[in-house]
């Protein structure tokens, strides 16, 4: 499954990573090398094998329904590159 330049652009766009045209060829080469190497998994027979997403030793633990957090707008906003009062600010989004 070799990547085309258009696919490299599409996934860069999905990942919101700006890439200029000069980078596409390099990325295409590198990604294809990695994916080509990964292809070795294709030789394994995984029929009927249960997929696992992680190796956690227990089932998910839950917490009680208590308000224990919040009320810290200063901390929440302290690293914001742009803000307006108690809001984060971004370039205007046209819907």
């Amino acid at each position: 499954m070799a990547l085309e330049p258009a696919t490299v652009r599409r996934i860069a766009r999905l990942a919101r990573l700006g890439v200029d045209d000069t980078e596409i060829a390099r990325l295409q080469g590198e990604l294809n090398a990695i994916l080509g190497w990964i292809e070795q998994l294709g030789e394994l027979d995984v029929e009927g094998v249960e997929p696992i997403a992680g190796v956690g030793q227990a089932a998910l633990r839950l917490r009680p329904d208590l308000v224990t957090d919040g009320d810290k707008a200063d901390a929440v906003l302290s690293n914001a590159p742009d803000r307006a009062g108690r809001f984060y600010a971004v370039p205007k989004v046209v819907e």
Binding site: R13, R16, L17, G18, V76, L77, N79, A80, P81, D82, Y88, V90, P91, V93
Partner: peptide, 18 residues
Amino acid sequence: GIRFGERVEADALDQLYE
């Protein structure tokens, strides 16, 4: 680039992300 971290300004949100 919205809540923390470095931001490169742009006129549109997607551009800002990219």
